[in-house]
Design a protein around this nucleic acid. Structure first.
Lengths: 128, 128
DNA sequence: GTAGACTATATGCATGATGCATATAGATAT
DNA sequence: ATATCTATATGCATCATGCATATAGTCTAC
């Protein structure tokens, strides 16, 4: 996530805080993965390559392992350098389920805010 | 925001990072307000009194003033202690407009994630 | 008239998430 | 042999937040 996080508002800092963690859990729910490969898969959730911060990705994965949400092992033999592959644990699945609830709430809070904003700017126009 | 942030998942830390700032800007778009009074108004965006951290509220307001998104002055004469009342600036209105775009994106990212999760857990059940 | 409750704002300290820069190293290509 | 790509990791600085605590004026009930 270098320079301009998302193109629409250059210079504005609006990282997705912890959202990355949830995306990773979901991707690993579907299949075992490794850091570098997960980066590409993250695009389906709206991350672009420019936004993605590699350090954050790897550190997040290690943190998740510390919390026993995922477990890792080295995969050797394939082409290129060794990969640390991650697998979701049962605790990780539970954690993901909780996050989904949180995100559902967060979504409705955002919707409410957008609705109030629309109303407010509407009134603003009318009184001009 | 003491103890358990949101009742559904006790112990889980899922603060709304910076969302507070956007809510405050929107409330101040509608009318001049002061810290303590804004707290109550925040309920309409899903914040509960237990979740709200007074320190964060006041500090956020002061930070926003430093960034010239709002300006403040002391209101005297009314009942109770003096209040520092805040008013949104033009820069604040522009900032809010940018945040709305960001939140719209964030919303669609969340929706995408929830959809993928639903699909994933569906497959999970079927293969059992 | 004073003790306690309520309104109101502010700040120090610790923690945690993130961005940026940098380090390391094996594999592949030219 | 050198450059590029894949792959993982870490140090440093900054920022947002939670918790605890400080300060002080106002209002109410006794």
């Amino acid at each position: 996530m270098n320079e301009h996080p998302i193109s629409c508002c250059p210079g504005k800092n609006h990282k997705m805080e912890r959202f990355l963690e949830v995306c990773l859990l979901l991707l690993l729910y579907n299949e075992i993965g490794h850091g570098y490969g997960l980066m590409e898969q993250l695009e389906q959730f709206g991350f672009t390559k420019e936004e993605l911060n590699v350090s954050t990705l790897y550190r997040t994965l290690r943190k998740m392992e510390k919390e026993a949400l995922v477990c890792s092992c080295w995969e050797e033999g394939g082409p290129g350098p060794k990969r640390r592959t991650y697998e979701i644990t049962d605790a990780g699945k539970e954690d993901l389920a909780q996050w989904i609830n949180i995100l559902k709430m967060r979504k409705s809070m955002i919707e409410q805010l957008i609705a109030v904003y629309a109303e407010t700017t509407q009134n603003d126009k009318e009184t001009k």
